[in-house]
Design a protein around this nucleic acid. Structure first.
Lengths: 375, 375
DNA sequence: TGAGATTTATTTAGTGGTTGAATTATTTGT
DNA sequence: ACAAATAATTCAACCACTAAATAAATCTCA
């Protein structure tokens, strides 16, 4: 759930200890349903109360934690002052471009969606420049709205339906994009010029959005059925992006080697059987194809849970049995422990929300940099 | 390559700082081809020379590093004293049981194989108890030989061709085993009773063995072709075991959904086309099937390199083209960056060696516990 | 109503580990 | 013989943690 304290090949100093323990204290409060006292934080983290007091004071001063005025009444003893995540601290901006809409979304430290703007329109004719300019304006509006709430947007993440590498959108077939420097275009807008902007694949970010909402399963595969099929793999609360960031292309996993040709040049790809169009034509076959491809994933990775998003979420009840039948049959360890299959809890918003959350997550994972900045 | 400093949900104290920096210093020396001076270590790690001196002194006193007597002659200035990993410190014991042999192997801190014992015999009729007793005796011999060299065996790892979970061998179909508490049986031997013993899948350990030998590629899939087919996935120098330790079952990835039935109950599994027997019958088809299954892995995980071990290594030249053809065709990103395919550099010994190395790796990753023990 | 119990939070002294500057050690070059 | 250069050590200062003592705020019950 949390980043490493530091890259393993870097030296560690006392300041890293502080940074780690600040993050630890913040996470402890964040993971608790109810407000926590300093001494409760000390008890669950294993740090002493003295240390926790110092850490919490710093977090409160920096606007990341808030002390609750009305002390919750308990038994005997000095009443504890409750601590919660601040709702007026840092926030993340999520941006999404898809075939038929643009979206912007602001998420605060607590994970709550504070603002959301959507613009429905076919983005294909516009081209990268116009589309990203419009998205940038939407983002600027969201940022302004956040500012009015006392929030400070610390970073933006852009969700794109395509292949991304080091900030570049290499390919977004459904948009017809190739080699687009999306962050540069977004930063062209003065209102976003100062913001750190990252780009990621839409399915990856949707997976992260789903992770945050559910919280329970730390390891799962999120499969998003749209025109194409993408997947985001979350392992132990962290997204696995692959060596070059191109993981999750489940749509082009071969299901029937001698099947119909795919637009990618291969034949018998999952997309040919379970893409949005194919799904509409032959549901049982789509379910079987999905089941076969997912069995491969489980056999290879021992993923305990699969979350179906996009159109698969809406058709979930009708697909479930067909998919599970293949999983039962083809997963080697299915008898030892069945794979959990469920529909995504977030709808179309999963990706923007995940994107916004990614940006604010950095503050949760390393509050020390925010504190330095906040002074 | 190195473990986390500490679990992210644990507090960090100064002692953890020390532990981390000890590991950092040790790794720095370990990763260098030539002996390093204290100040070279300081320069590459970013720690001050004062700190490095203290760290190195501790590592030398604990027998993990050795100071070289003859100072390598350089230019002006006080000559540096060279530091290398100690060849008389801790060592790891690797044990392997397979269908037709038993093996034991001792690896020292430098990664060198110091002793190796192999006993060829069909292990299937013996049953778990007799087989593991014999393996234990082999291990005891290896431990004794190591002791004579001044080495201290700090732990043993057992490689098994089967499904492993929390120390139990759940299934080892080729041996005919089920639910065997292998560490308990091994510890039955008084000579091994005091040793921490872990168990892991043979392909996983072979992958680790291969990682250590090559050192270059930190992320790759190791595929071991034996009677069954197993795979070990190494991501960033660390083995990915899956949620329950059952990852890597590539042998049961579906290649032709309507293919012949497999002993696992499914149909068209890779094993039916590229298992040892099938491979002998129809090489081109085996290569194609392998290529299809590997394409799925690459599409899903964006693995940049694939290492073929076991029988695949011996037949590599004849399989290569067939596999690569499918990879080129079916991997979505094959045009952006081709997948490296190569034969394993280690032969039959990969698994034992990886097993032995795993045990000694713990000391490399956290020398502090060894130092506490060494006094 | 007030003393004692109880729990929370802060203060203070002590410890361990790192830094940076100064010092010592050992060699080469002139 | 002495300066220059490089390696390694020593020492004072600093920072973050721990443990124990203290202060603060409330409850309980005679």
């Amino acid at each position: 759930m949390m980043a490493r304290l530091t890259s393993s090949s870097a030296p560690v100093r006392q300041s890293n200890v502080r940074a780690h323990n600040l993050a630890l204290a913040l996470h402890t409060v964040a993971n608790s349903a109810d407000p926590m006292s300093r001494s409760a934080v000390a008890a669950t983290t294993g740090l002493t109360r003295a240390t926790v007091s110092a850490l919490v004071d710093e977090l409160v001063a920096g606007g990341l934690l808030t002390e609750l005025d009305p002390p919750p009444r308990t038994g005997a003893g000095r009443p504890a002052v409750g601590l919660t995540l601040s709702a007026t601290g840092p926030a993340g901006l999520g941006l999404e471009i898809n075939v038929d809409y643009l979206a912007a979304c602001v998420v605060d430290l607590t994970g709550a969606v504070r603002h959301r703007f959507i613009e429905h329109a076919d983005q294909r004719p516009a081209g990268p420049y116009a589309a990203l300019s419009a998205l940038g304006r939407l983002g600027a509006r969201a940022r302004l709205a956040a500012k009015a709430d006392g929030l400070v947007v610390v970073g933006a993440t852009l969700a794109v339906p395509g292949l991304v590498s080091t900030g570049f959108v290499l390919q977004a077939p459904n948009l017809g994009w190739q080699n687009v420097d999306a962050p540069a275009l977004l930063r062209g807008l003065p209102e976003l010029a100062d913001l750190p902007i990252t780009v990621d694949n839409e399915a990856n970010l949707a997976a992260l959005g789903e992770l945050r909402v559910t919280g329970t399963e730390p390891t799962f595969l999120y499969v998003s059925g749209e025109i194409g099929i993408g997947a985001g793999l979350v392992i132990d609360g962290e997204l696995y992006r692959g060596a070059r960031g191109w993981s999750g292309e489940i749509g082009h996993v071969t299901v029937f080697p001698d099947g119909p040709p795919c637009r990618c040049g291969a034949a018998g790809c999952l997309e040919q059987y379970a893409g949005q169009e194919a799904l509409a034509e032959d549901e049982p076959r789509a379910a079987a194809a999905l089941g076969i491809a997912l069995s491969a994933v489980v056999n290879l990775l021992d993923v305990p849970a699969i979350v179906l998003g996009g159109v698969y979420a809406t058709y979930f009840d009708r697909l479930r049995e067909g998919i599970e039948a293949e999983l039962r049959r083809r997963v080697l360890t299915s008898e030892l422990a069945p794979v959990t299959l469920r529909a995504a809890r977030l709808g179309t918003n999963a990706a923007v929300r995940g994107a916004a959350d990614t940006a604010v997550q950095q503050v949760r994972d390393d509050p020390a940099v925010w504190l330095r900045r906040a002074g």
